[in-house]
Write a protein that binds this DNA or RNA. Structure first.
Length: 323
DNA sequence: TCCGATTCCCGCCATC
DNA sequence: ACGATGGCGGGAATCG
């Protein structure tokens, strides 16, 4: 049993609460009852809490009646957090909770509460860009990453905008129970072309659960020979199987079709090279097996909604913001 | 931009 | 009877 709590307050953003709740609740459907997440909503004050969109939620208890002992504690955000003032006793409770919880985190500008409680000093922190300044003011030593969906510092996890809370929750799920479970949940909650879902699928494919050594060998061959011809007949012959049998086994064991796996592997390599080197896009396209720049561009458009060049600009500005 | 060729996926069925 | 394997062919996506 994992206990996960969400800290809410008046005018909290409903999605910050329901997003993670839905992820962990959905996960329970795939988990053995002994591994279930027990979810608890803790509020800054007693009674019903009205969300910024008018939705009413009924927290299990106010913080001052809660031990603050959870496996995971997430602080939600809301449009008026920056202007709000909370009692010093809440910050004390958060500091104690940070000691007791295996993992503590925030969603969007929920990070402000952690900052005010003095829990973000010198840490890398994600938040929504529009609150970056307020956060920098609340905690000048925090390193604010406005372009990351979420930042995992082990015991501290923080996420950017509302939708990123789902990404972060899926990440936490993968961290604890493996990418396969997170992928199962993502399939329930996210559209099929969602980048997070695709990332999980690739992560999952690289760690096949009941994989035959033959499939693992093929995966290693693909990763080591990205520029080579990795068409299905070629891979099938290396695996010593018919094309039909090979595709069937590969999909069954990795949850990705062979061509999807190859494309993800190439995309992943290209992404890394774009981020970490200054090599021309054309060279990277060739090195990663896309053959030519337009083809790589098309794949980037499909997966990331931007060209490789733009992706590089984006990631370098992210790195700059990181520093 | 269009269009035929190619590639891939997958259901179905036969064989071992 | 059942699982593993392989071939065929249609539909969709992609390529040149």
């Amino acid at each position: 049993m994992t206990t996960a709590a969400l800290l809410v307050f008046p005018d909290v953003r409903a999605l910050d609460v329901t997003g993670p709740l839905d992820v962990f609740t959905e996960a329970n459907r795939f988990l053995h009852p002994r591994q279930h997440y027990r979810l608890e909503i803790v509020s800054t004050e007693g009674g019903r809490v009205r969300c910024s969109n008018g939705l009413a939620i009924y927290p299990h208890k106010p913080f001052f009646e809660s031990s603050g002992q959870f496996d995971l504690l997430l602080v939600a955000g809301g449009p008026s957090v920056a202007r709000a003032s909370f009692d010093e006793s809440l910050y004390r409770w958060l500091r104690v909770a940070a000691e007791q919880c295996a993992c503590i985190g925030s969603i969007c500008n929920g990070a402000l509460l952690l900052a005010w409680a003095g829990l973000l000093d010198g840490r890398r922190v994600a938040t929504h860009w529009s609150f970056a300044e307020a956060l920098a003011h609340a905690c000048p030593t925090a390193r604010i990453c406005i372009n990351d969906a979420y930042v995992d510092e082990g015991k501290l996890v923080t996420s950017a905008g509302v939708a990123a809370s789902i990404d972060m929750s899926l990440h936490l799920l993968a961290r604890q129970h493996g990418a396969a479970l997170a992928l199962d949940v993502a399939k329930q909650l996210l559209p099929s072309n969602d980048p997070t879902r695709e990332r999980l699928a690739f992560q999952c494919a690289l760690t096949p659960q009941a994989a035959s050594s033959a499939i693992v060998e093929i995966q290693q061959y693909v990763l080591a020979n990205l520029p080579a011809d990795l068409s299905i007949p070629v891979l099938a012959s290396i695996a010593n199987m018919s094309v039909r049998h090979f595709t069937r086994i590969f999909s069954r064991e990795t949850r990705l079709s062979p061509s999807e796996f190859v494309e993800q592997a190439r995309l992943d390599a290209a992404r890394t090279l774009l981020e970490s080197t200054l090599r021309p896009v054309k060279t990277i396209a060739y090195e990663c097996g896309f053959g030519n720049a337009p083809r790589m561009r098309a794949v980037f458009q499909r997966h990331f909604g931007m060209s490789p060049q733009l992706y590089r600009t984006h990631s370098s500005s992210e790195a700059a913001a990181d520093r």
